[in-house]
């Protein structure tokens, strides 16, 4: 047997060093922004990082953002979703056995979300009331300490990125014929007022 039989997988050394650096920083307790896996369709649009808050404008985008982490074996949670479509979540790739759902936290939504962020990797929140800057900063601090990701469907004072779907077209449906088959959407990612990414994707 020659040495060529022992194949080392091709890894970009720089990426590997970055990853190791991040882990060392995490052990040292420093402020670190580890990446959280997302579905392939978000590549180039947005990269979830722990401690971040991301805004979405539809339930589908919220489920799709959480799906990557769920597929990677993390626990995800949905708070304030009293109309959670279980079958759609599964079709988007969320592992239902690692999903926690708080359909209507009511007035306790802030405490519930803070407690969920403690233990879950990605929490998708639909706030029931108006969010003030104070509540948002409490959650921000908790997120950074616990290395979770918060995805908010609705208004939020400061977001790392905000995803919105534009120019939605449905395929497969006519006038009394066919059925909804797939949705072509242009997803636009904004930070503040500036557009940071734009891509046309097919959502189920």
């Amino acid at each position: 047997m020659s040495h060529a039989a022992v194949l080392v997988p091709e890894v970009d050394p720089h990426a590997r060093i970055e990853q190791l650096r991040g882990r060392i920083q995490a052990l040292q307790g420093g402020p670190t922004r580890l990446t959280v896996p997302t579905l392939a369709m978000f590549d180039g649009l947005v990269q979830l990082r722990t401690g971040g808050v991301y805004g979405v404008d539809s339930a589908t985008l919220g489920m799709a953002l959480a799906a990557g982490a769920s597929q990677a074996g993390e626990w995800v949670g949905f708070a304030g979703w009293d109309d959670f479509g279980v079958e759609a979540a599964q079709q988007h790739g969320i592992a239902l056995s690692r999903t926690v759902l708080v359909p209507s936290p009511g007035e306790h939504w802030l405490e519930v979300t803070a407690a969920l962020v403690d233990v879950l990797k990605v929490v998708v929140l639909r706030p029931t009331g108006v969010v003030d800057a104070k509540s948002a900063s409490i959650l921000d601090a908790r997120l950074r300490a616990r290395s979770g990701v918060l995805v908010v469907q609705g208004d939020w004072p400061r977001c790392d990125a905000r995803l919105s779907s534009e120019q939605t077209t449905w395929e497969g449906i006519g006038h009394g014929r066919g059925r909804l088959r797939e949705r072509r959407v242009e997803i636009v990612a904004r930070r503040g007022a500036g557009v940071i990414g734009r891509s046309a994707v097919v959502l189920a």
């Binding site: 979540a89 239902l96 926690v100 759902l101 708080v102 209507s104 306790h108 519930v112």
Partner: peptide, 21 residues
């Protein structure tokens, strides 16, 4: 996760936290 969710249950009642199936 089990401990964290138990805390949420203590806050909002045991049937307010659900597992979708």
């Amino acid at each position: 996760v089990v401990r964290g969710v138990a805390r949420v249950q203590a806050m909002v009642g045991y049937d307010a936290v659900r597992v979708p199936v």
